[in-house]
Write a protein that binds this DNA or RNA. Sequence first.
RNA 1: GGGGAAUUAGCUCAGCUGGUAGAGUGCUGCGAUCGCACCGCAGAGGUCAGGGGUUCGAAUCCCCUAUUCUCCA
Length: 877
Amino acid sequence: MLTYLSGAQIRQTFIDFYAERAHQVLPSASLVPEDPTVLLTIAGMLPFKPIFLGQRQAEFNRAVTAQKCIRTNDIENVGRTARHQTFFEMLGNFSFGDYFKEKAIAWAWELSTQVLGFPPERVVVSVFREDDEAFAIWRDQIGIPAHRIQRMDEKDNFWNSGPTGPCGPCSELYYDFHPELGDDHIDLEDDTRFIEFYNLVFMQYNQDAEGNLTPLQNQNIDTGMGLERVAQILQQVPNNYETDLIFPIVKKAAEIAGIDYAKSDESTKVSLKVIGDHVRAVMHMIADGISASNLGRGYVLRRLIRRVVRHGRLIGIDKPFINEVTEVAIAISEDAYPGVRAREKAIQAELLLEESRFLETLDRGEKLLSEILTRVEKSGKEISGHDAFVLYDTYGFPLELTQEVAEERGLTVDVAGFETEMEQQRQRSQAAHETIDLTVQGTLDKLAESLNETAFLGYTQFSGGAEVKVLLVQGKSVEAAEAGTEVQIVLDQTPFYAESGGQIGDRGYLSGDTVVVRVEDVKKEGALFVHFGKVERGTVQVGDRVTAQIDLACRRRAQANHTATHLLQAALKKLVDDSISQAGSLVAFDRLRFDFNCPRPLTSEEIQQVEEQVNTWISEAHAAHISILPIAEAKAKGAIAMFGEKYGDEVRVLDFPGVSMELCGGTHVSNTAEIGVFKIVSESGVAAGIRRIEAVAGPAVLDYLNVRDQVVRELGDRFKAKPEELPERITALQTELKTTQKQLDQLKGELALAKSDQLLGQAASVGSFKLLVAELEGVDPDSLKTVAERLLQKLGDGAVVLGSVPEAEKVSLVAAFSKGVNDKGLQAGKFIGAIAKLCGGGGGGRPNLAQAGGRDPSKLAEALVAARQQLESALSQ
RNA sequence: GGGGAAUUAGCUCAGCUGGUAGAGUGCUGCGAUCGCACCGCAGAGGUCAGGGGUUCGAAUCCCCUAUUCUCCA
């Protein structure tokens, strides 16, 4: 009855269907979203969010995409239910102020029943409780019986992207696996019977802070059809993991483990499904430039990789295996996502590295665990929840492994206690999260609503008139600010470049008839340029006309550094590895920093070659060509693009023909010759697989050289040597210093010995004990100790107390007591502490040997007399 | 974004409640052996991640920074 379609066919069918209906076909956006508030692309609509929120103009009225997505919030369910996945593809058709409910519903229905071939009687739909319009369309125009249209509450069928902003009702299509159960008690939550496969969102309202809904001018359509779910239905398999999109990976994992999926027990199947799911996720994440780390999305990746390794171990795989299964995943995806094959090497390297890192973590955990186990075995039978939690929380050692190992030794683990600690950790994190959200964002969001975006004039103009639209002092909107105040200012238009794409914001001045504001930085908040600065003179007011003038010298420096960064990237690609791409960048006035993915350090030859290449390009005087193009056209021309570009945008392409072509919004020199010179300062590692080059270009080179030059000259003066002789000179001095130091130590030792021999004669007898109290001149604490120990050794049973003044304002004391003295109830530590107090200090140590110090040398003699008296009386008893 | 942990010799790590920084391994030399592995002896190798503070005294206690590991979001 259902026609089998492969995952690839379903994807293509969906895209073709909407392409025929005038939708622009767009490629999947990167898993790394442009939106800084989310870690990963979690939904098909995410790349369009700025359009829906009205922050950006759409280039098309209609679009269709197959979007790769990652979600890890239900990670525990992966493999256990039929449909939870961390990685999935969302097919979506979108309307930006174009068609609305009627067409969206009609097309969804046509696609589902006529193209994909779902029998109409197997499809049940839901609408929002109050959405009579959608209900009517389904019933009257599509002809679905009213009892098969379920009305649902806000929780399920009302979409919004936050407490305020655009929102609207949804309508969902469900597939019915068991129509024979009848239509009387339809419960769409029953996932043994129904599966939601298509969600239509009708964005028709704007919600304000008070919760009022007002109709939107531009109504939008946002939809999502889960590719794997549709595949599950059409391929008539019991879950997503057994579709042709994932199952080959599962089979490969089973093969490596030497088992048969069909004959496996439930928990083995879960492990295989987890591997099948996660491997796709990690492959795409790495392909999109994410590398495993301990933070943010890199941490998500790491966790997924570790889960794969762990589940591999659970089913009996005891060797590295991820790359083998990943190869299958790449083969499945490469037609739809060619980037995956292109990044194959990087994927393999990353996985191998991370797999071995995890094994290290496990080793460390096992060591700690065995320490805990031996401790616990003495006292009882249970490992505390706290111990298990520390192992997990601090050392990343999974709870199940702790339990396993404990069991082998006949011990149990307090799982309830573990969960309690885990819950506390969760609450801490959440509490911390919410306190931050409220502070900064609010005022700026409100500003964005009432203002047009700031017009940027700075590509061509360096000064210009502007009006003060908003004035902020300490985050709050004010009408005026006096001289001396730190302010943030939004203008209607500005020549100031705002920090973006790694290039820092311009500096300069805003000046009016009576007012001057010094601008120290400019940042973007959405579409607004916020000038950070200080009022230097007069009073600035909202509505003031000012002249905005950037610091041209700074700008020129930034331009030189920025263009040099592009040349650097081009040179790295040309001379080191074509697959090098940017992983971060900073363009400041005095330097530039370029991070890029590269698995190994560069050799010094490579660094030199790269530097020479950049300088060659500079001297060849290449002119910049700047054009504004649709993104697809720019990419087709071969412009270097970073991950996570926006859809629907025209992009600025900076082209030095034959040398470098990149999408870039920054400011640049108009000819490479303006840079003058380029110098690499350092090459270093930032994180695993990422290298960093720091360099200087243009006027900044001179600064750099001046600083270096001055240091070298000063060293030359001090050492009375030419610069090139300095290293040799310093080595010689170091050696000399060391030998001198050694001689000194030796002499000190000898001197101390000599002195101790002299002192030996001064020892007095008290009962059966020998007592020696003496002052040595100018002996350092360490030698004092050596002497005391040696003296006591020679004296036998007794006590030695020595004092000295090693430097001005310092007193040093040492006491050495024999065992016999200890038995008399005298402890060196306590004794010397009391004596040191007399010299304005304190001290302590072990019963047999202790040292102390003080600050008052004039009291030393007195203190030693006291020490002698106390010892005499104590020992004579 | 919020916790926890780590950073000590080239490498792997000890170092307890503050009191002269150690081991194993590797390195150099000597001995033993026909020679090697091994063994024995001796030696070199440390701004205890960096910066502040507390203290008579800090690898050790406190604060900050950096890096790494790890958990939560």
